[in-house]
Design a protein around this nucleic acid. Structure first.
Length: 505
DNA sequence: AAAAAAG
């Protein structure tokens, strides 16, 4: 199967070929012919499965015939966030280069003037976030009566964000005879209701359940004391990280952590919802072109963002909502590349971890990092096994017995996880055992950590004095490292401690 | 417990 078999025009196939793609993904192969035939579609798929191209490509051909009229867009694509909307617009530019389609991107945070001008001229494709679309509609700048094709993308996220009433309003303003494509990673009841109401005998397409979390992502959890998160992260980044997105739960944490990383000599940037739109775009661009290789992010970047070659995702804070975990780690391991996803777990995160592991149906392997203080955190009264915490009592007990092997049968790696009375910061044997890779710092450690931790927490001789530059982490990657092909994700060597998993699974 | 989206 390749793109030429799907019924797309030659110009379009040329544009796809120019972009370096030849084989359609599962969702593309299933959706494109149906969209071309004018059918409604429910697509259960994450981005990264090629979902965007699955509707962008056929839409370009469908809209290639006919022309737009002033204020009457011919098609509408709804996206939950501004970044996703902009990303879809980029796809239209990329694949529509041999077609002359007009397009308007209606998102908040930027001035309305240009958007209104584009609408006045008439557009074939309207790509919008609900807020700005409703705003412009209420001002009388848009007529949706000529809009025969609607795409509701990331429907489950629209639901999370409270957009469903807006979506319903918008649906009723479109002509009743239209084609509707709905994409969602999951199908919670409100989305099912929405599709029952606004889609007509849709074709149901489901690919790679997101909860099964992409096999190309190697996951790990790191038990860490809250106050040692920063040092632990630095240690892991020092070991050599190509490109990382670091998720935090709060915007303030994003800001603080990015500041600390920059002070520590890392090439990092940040993105969160309190930033000006242009700053968000600028930071994303820097991340994409390699000016920075670490992006500290709130959940604004958790879903859908398609940045190639992200080698690592760190959950600096464990996400409260388990769905967010799946979405966050999905920023790595994209387009056939491999990725690593590490989640910091503090004592407060027990319930969040339990929910995550329940959702993904597996126990995330635990890895240990020197100085995380994780062993101390574990010295608390034993908690129930994470995945079983919410299970009925009887299951809990039997399951627990099974998963906990007798002490002396466990590997030494397992023993490293044993609760211990000894503070690992003082205990050389533990340090030696857990530190598999020697850290190298961009700047002498003392310079970096000047304002972070009291000196005494780190034995002086532990601090490397070499002038060694940090490996890839400190250096902007060459731009050809990624973003110039579909399969150019990171596949480089992995520092030992990042690739070694300990016990549990 | 937060963040996102309209300003």
């Amino acid at each position: 199967m390749n793109f030429a078999d799907l019924g797309l025009s030659e110009e379009l196939i040329q544009a796809v070929t120019d972009s370096g793609y030849t084989i359609p993904t599962a969702i593309q192969a299933q959706a494109i012919p149906s969209v071309l035939m004018g059918k409604d579609i429910i697509g259960i798929a994450q981005t990264g499965t090629g979902k965007t191209a699955a509707f962008v490509l056929p839409m370009i051909d469908v809209l290639g015939e006919g022309r737009s009229r002033a204020r009457m867009p011919r098609s509408l694509i709804l996206e939950p966030t501004r970044e996703l909307a902009a990303q879809v617009a980029e796809n239209f530019d990329k694949y529509g280069k041999y077609h002359k389609l007009s397009m308007a991107l209606l998102i908040g945070g930027v001035s309305m003037g240009d958007q209104i001008k584009a609408l006045e001229k008439g557009v074939d494709v309207l790509i919008a976030t609900p807020g700005r679309l409703m705003d412009l509609y209420d001002r009388g700048n848009i007529l949706l009566t000529g809009c025969g094709l609607l795409v509701i993308d990331e429907a489950d996220r629209m639901l999370d964000m409270g957009f469903i009433p807006d979506i319903e309003t918008i649906c009723t303003r479109l002509p009743a005879t239209r084609q509707t494509l709905l994409f969602s990673a999951t199908m919670p009841p409100p989305i099912k209701k929405l599709s029952d109401r606004f889609l007509t005998s849709p074709k149901y397409i489901e690919v790679a359940r997101p909860a099964s979390a992409n096999a190309s992502i190697e996951q790990g959890k790191v038990r860490v004391q809250a106050r040692r998160k920063r040092d632990t992260l630095f240690t892991m980044l020092d070991a050599g990280v190509h490109t990382a997105i670091i998720f935090c739960n709060r915007k303030t944490t994003v800001r603080d952590l990015n500041k600390a990383l920059r002070q520590g000599g890392f090439d990092s940037g940040e993105i969160h919802g309190d930033m000006e739109q242009r700053d968000r775009i600028a930071e994303l661009d820097k991340f994409k072109d390699g000016t920075i290789n670490i992006l500290v992010a709130s959940d604004v970047a958790a879903r859908g963002l398609d940045i190639k070659g992200v080698s690592h995702v760190f959950n600096y804070d464990a996400p409260w909502h388990p769905d967010d975990y799946v979405h966050r780690i999905g920023r790595t391991g994209r387009a056939g590349a491999t990725g690593k996803a590490y989640t910091f777990i503090t004592e407060e995160d027990a319930e969040a971890l339990a929910n995550i592991e329940k959702l993904i149906g597996t126990t995330i392997p635990e890895i240990t990092v020197a100085d995380s203080g994780g062993a101390v955190a574990e010295a608390k009264p034993a908690k129930p096994r994470a995945t079983e915490e919410r299970a009925p009592r009887r299951r809990t007990r039997s399951g627990e017995a099974k998963s906990r092997a007798p002490r002396d049968e466990r590997s030494s790696a397992d023993k490293a996880e044993e609760p211990t009375e000894v503070d690992v910061r003082e205990a050389q044997p533990v340090r030696e055992k857990t530190r598999v890779s020697k850290p190298r710092a961009a700047k002498p450690r003392e310079e970096r950590s000047r304002d972070k931790q009291p000196r005494e927490e780190r034995p002086r001789e532990e601090r490397p004095r070499s002038e060694d530059r940090r490996p890839s982490a400190s250096k902007p990657r060459r731009s050809n490292d990624r973003n110039d092909g579909p399969d150019d994700g990171w596949n480089g060597p992995m520092p030992d401690f990042l690739s070694v998993g300990f016990g549990e699974s």
